[in-house]
């Protein structure tokens, strides 16, 4: 039933044609809001939140640069962000980036954690499937990011590639400034162990990602 309803709403999006497009006065010039004005609005919008929550939406320099440039940085700014984010990546002390792919599979599926509706002790996931295809068997995947199917296999299960994937997941912007992918390690959305498990999900030959 639920699937049928989703199909219905999807069909609607495609089919609804009762809308007229008017390109009229949208080109009207409205000047850009001063950053201080925007900050004041944002602050007022979340006035009721706790200090912990408020702290989470204080922008860092990278978020600020990406927001103000709609994710398209000048070359100089791009290099600056890249260097800063690269420097933030912390690899496991023993240099080993491989964990347990079965745990990684759960983390890739799990979209819980970090929302104001979640109980504070919720163990959060990476919600990789929200944006990526991974295992062929999972049909419910998003398309905001590229398919990661056979990710390790394509890379011949190489250790340096697994390390690069660890860095990518730890901080996506250490590879690609202003990426839409969350910086899971930097913001502690995922723990070191969780990132290792997810890397294994991508790189273990037994993982369904590589089947």
């Amino acid at each position: 039933m639920k699937i049928a309803l989703i199909a219905l709403s999807a069909a609607l999006v495609v089919g609804a044609g009762a809308v007229s497009i008017s390109a009229v006065s949208t080109a009207q010039q409205v000047s850009k809001a001063a950053p201080a004005v925007v900050d004041a609005y944002v602050e007022a919008t979340f006035k009721g939140a706790s200090d912990t929550w408020k702290g989470r939406i204080k922008q860092d320099e990278t978020q600020r640069a990406c927001s103000e440039n709609k994710n398209e940085l000048s070359t100089a700014e791009f290099q600056k962000v890249l260097a800063r984010e690269k420097a933030s990546v912390v690899f496991p002390a023993d240099g080993k980036v491989i964990g347990n792919w079965k745990e990684g599979a759960k983390i890739a599926q799990n979209g819980r954690g970090g929302q104001f509706s979640d109980p504070p002790d919720t163990v959060g996931g990476g919600n990789c499937y929200a944006c990526h295809q991974l295992s062929k068997a999972e049909l419910s995947f998003g398309t905001m990011g590229p398919s990661l199917n056979e990710y390790g296999k394509i890379r011949r299960f190489r250790e340096d590639e697994a390390k690069a994937a660890y860095a990518k997941i730890y901080n996506a912007q250490s590879v690609m400034p202003c990426s839409n992918m969350p910086r899971f390690g930097l913001t502690k959305a995922l723990s070191e162990q969780q990132i290792k498990d997810v890397v294994s999900y991508l790189f273990d030959p037994e993982s369904p990602v590589n089947k």
């Binding site: 409205v30 809001a33 989470r56 839409n180 969350p182 910086r183 913001t187």
Partner: peptide, 21 residues
């Protein structure tokens, strides 16, 4: 006009632990 300009800026404003806008 201020509301429009602020709304636009807020639409593209990234923040939070997942960097979302």
């Amino acid at each position: 006009q201020e509301m429009y300009a602020v709304g636009k800026a807020m639409f593209f404003r990234r923040g939070g632990t997942w960097d979302f806008a």
